[in-house]
Computed example of a mutant assay.
Amino acid sequence: MVARYEDETGIRFENERFYRAYAAFSLAVVWEDFHRERIETGAESDWEPHIDYMLMIAESIATGEFPL
């Protein structure tokens, strides 16, 4: 997909680690909102472990521990 993007736009894709970490963090933010909404309505939420996991993935990508 990256090669196709580069071929069609003529723009070189750089900073892959940043964009992957940002995507993981953004997903954690969305899941956090699902969790918040359930808690505020008085329902039980099982989103917290998913949020923690995705934040761990985002951090490991950003620090270079997670191979790309």
Rank of each mutant, 00 (worst) to 15 (best):
M1E: 07
M1W: 06
M1D: 07
V2M: 11
V2G: 01
A3E: 08
A3Q: 05
A3P: 00
R4F: 00
R4N: 01
Y5T: 05
Y5L: 11
Y5H: 05
Y5Q: 03
E6W: 02
E6S: 03
E6Y: 01
D7I: 00
E8I: 08
E8M: 11
E8Q: 05
G10H: 02
I11C: 00
I11V: 11
I11S: 00
R12T: 08
F13H: 05
F13K: 00
E14M: 01
E14F: 00
N15D: 14
E16D: 10
E16H: 10
R17W: 08
R17Y: 09
Y19L: 11
A21M: 11
A21R: 06
Y22T: 09
Y22N: 12
Y22C: 08
A23H: 10
A23C: 11
A24T: 03
A24I: 04
F25K: 08
F25P: 00
S26W: 01
S26F: 01
S26N: 03
S26C: 04
L27W: 06
L27P: 00
L27H: 05
A28C: 04
A28K: 05
A28Q: 07
V29E: 12
V29G: 02
V30Q: 07
V30H: 09
V30N: 08
V30K: 11
W31M: 12
E32K: 06
E32F: 05
D33R: 15
D33Y: 14
D33Q: 15
F34N: 13
H35Q: 08
H35R: 12
R36W: 08
R36K: 12
E37Y: 13
E37D: 14
E37S: 15
E37F: 12
I39Q: 12
E40F: 09
E40P: 01
E40V: 04
E40A: 13
E40C: 06
T41K: 15
T41H: 14
T41I: 12
G42E: 09
G42N: 10
A43C: 14
A43M: 15
S45R: 08
S45T: 14
S45E: 04
W47Q: 02
W47I: 03
W47P: 00
W47E: 01
E48C: 02
H50T: 10
H50I: 09
H50F: 09
I51T: 04
I51N: 02
I51V: 15
D52C: 09
D52A: 14
D52G: 14
D52V: 14
Y53E: 13
M54Y: 09
L55T: 03
L55I: 07
L55G: 02
M56H: 11
M56K: 14
M56T: 13
M56G: 12
A58G: 12
A58R: 07
A58D: 08
A58P: 10
E59P: 01
S60I: 03
S60G: 01
S60C: 09
I61Q: 02
I61C: 07
A62F: 10
A62Q: 10
T63C: 07
G64W: 07
G64K: 09
E65R: 10
F66S: 01
F66A: 04
P67C: 04
L68S: 11
L68W: 06
L68E: 15
L68V: 11
